[in-house]
Design a protein around this nucleic acid. Structure first.
Ligand SMILES: NC(=O)c1ccc[n+]([C@@H]2O[C@H](COP(=O)([O-])OP(=O)(O)OC[C@H]3O[C@@H](n4cnc5c(N)ncnc54)[C@H](O)[C@@H]3O)[C@@H](O)[C@H]2O)c1
Ligand SMILES: NC(=O)c1ccc[n+]([C@@H]2O[C@H](COP(=O)([O-])OP(=O)(O)OC[C@H]3O[C@@H](n4cnc5c(N)ncnc54)[C@H](O)[C@@H]3O)[C@@H](O)[C@H]2O)c1
Lengths: 210, 210
DNA sequence: GAGTATTTGATATTTTTTTCACAACAATTT
DNA sequence: AAATTGTTGTGAAAAAAATATCAAATACTC
């Protein structure tokens, strides 16, 4: 199986291509895409070859075909339904965000233990956590966002996995131990800031970057 | 200069160590830390040697010393002041989050162009964007969080850089072009979800992971 | 329609990152 | 105090990732 970085680059190529398409481009060369995505042209062609994406020698790639192929690889042909646990600060921000839907991702329901947060009427309902397993099974959702406090994160992740969730985007600042056949992407904002701070400090000391 | 992944591992070691300390551990071996952080013991020792962190042969490392050294490397000896631009969904979630402060990071001010968002009275004031440059210079802040809509992101990033910001944590779904001596960490949540979806789909097809 | 210029796709090379392996050493036992 | 055990620190090896190279293909020019 290909590695994570490679799929992230595919997402980048996709965005770049959509931008190029909007600008009227009909075909594109690996070099153009490379520039737009901030990588080398070799990298672009290497990535494509991994997925069996081919172009025309000297003719480059058709923008439309390329977009279609990448969308298919990324599973963007069908709307991807996602659930959210923890309708707090981060959870609410995500629920309000309109950008996911234009990208074919829809948060279909949120879950919380706080009775105050429950709201069945909303277009994006917030349901009690007890209903999580049933909902996920009935709607065969496979991806979930975890936005609960760190103390609850482990417990909730187990519930998610038990209910059939296979991919978790975790915002809690703990390293979740993924079960077999479950993939977990951790977003740790404090670590990201720490990282930035380290490099800024290092840069100020040495005047150098990377 | 060391690479980003390595610093991220340092952050992980730090968290693991703090957990171990809370559990009463006084010393620790590279193997323990490796398990706690999900890496190999060689990796731990290699990382440490990069920063000149040494332990005692056969005696392992003193938890307290190790924590102190890592905190110093990560610049956590002093409170790190950070600014935020864009007091919208994500921005507000970040402003309300209490977890940063316990980690020595403090959002000292937020900025927005929407007059409705301005609030000078709050403990964490939201100020008009026009005051950004002065504020940053006067308070010599070097790290900023960018949480404005994608269309505004490029413009705001330039303002930030011009004002002296050297590290940007960017939430807008565009690839910011970092100037010289400026480091940018992009958080692209849609890409993260896309990634998850890809691997979940791939796993369902092949029954395999990685 | 031949010739030329340019780009892909595959392979080779280089660079980076991770893991291995083990000498050096220090605590503990005998 | 000698032997033993267990852990570090590091240079060497391996693995993984990125980049360079170049023959083959093909679009374009004249
Ligand atoms: N808000 C931020 O900017 C931010 C930044 C970095 C990390 N995080 C992390 O993201 C997570 C969420 O942060 P937040 O600020 O949104 O927290 P929050 O306290 O605002 O929201 C947490 C929500 O989870 C709900 N909850 C608690 N336990 C639950 C459970 N067992 N099952 C279901 N729901 C439960 C709570 O009722 C609440 O609505 C935390 O782990 C936090 O550390 C947040
Ligand atoms: N909310 C999410 O869950 C989410 C998810 C993924 C990505 N993002 C990205 O994060 C960014 C912020 O998202 P959001 O949902 O918080 O948006 P939002 O619209 O809620 O907030 C944006 C804020 O930025 C302010 N703003 C606009 N232009 C500005 C400018 N030039 N200078 C200063 N402030 C300005 C607005 O007044 C508003 O308060 C966007 O780029 C979005 O694509 C958000």
């Amino acid at each position: 199986m290909v590695n994570k970085k490679c799929i992230i680059r595919l997402s980048r190529y996709k965005s770049a291509l959509q931008r190029l398409k909007a600008l009227g481009f009909v075909k594109v060369f690996s070099g153009n895409l490379a520039d737009a995505a901030g990588v080398t042209s070799s990298q672009v062609r290497k990535d494509f070859s991994l997925f069996g994406i081919t172009g025309n020698r000297r003719g480059g790639y058709s923008v439309d075909e390329l977009i279609a192929k990448i969308l298919e690889i990324l599973g963007k042909n069908e709307l991807q339904r996602v659930v959210l646990v923890g309708a707090g600060n981060i959870g609410t921000a995500l629920m309000r965000y309109k950008g996911f839907e234009s990208g074919g991702i829809k948060i279909v329901a949120a879950f919380d233990i706080d009775p105050e947060k429950i709201n069945r009427r909303s277009e994006l309902p917030v349901l009690p956590l007890e209903e999580f397993a049933d909902f996920v099974k009935q709607n065969s959702v496979r991806v979930g966002i975890l936005a609960v406090p760190d103390i609850a994160a482990h417990h909730v992740s187990e519930l998610m996995i038990r209910s059939g969730i296979m991919g978790i985007l975790n915002f809690a600042p703990i390293q979740l131990r993924g079960a077999d056949k479950v993939i977990i992407n951790n977003i740790n904002l404090e670590v990201e800031l720490e990282n930035l701070i380290y490099f800024v400090n290092a840069m100020q000391k040495t005047g150098q970057i990377e």
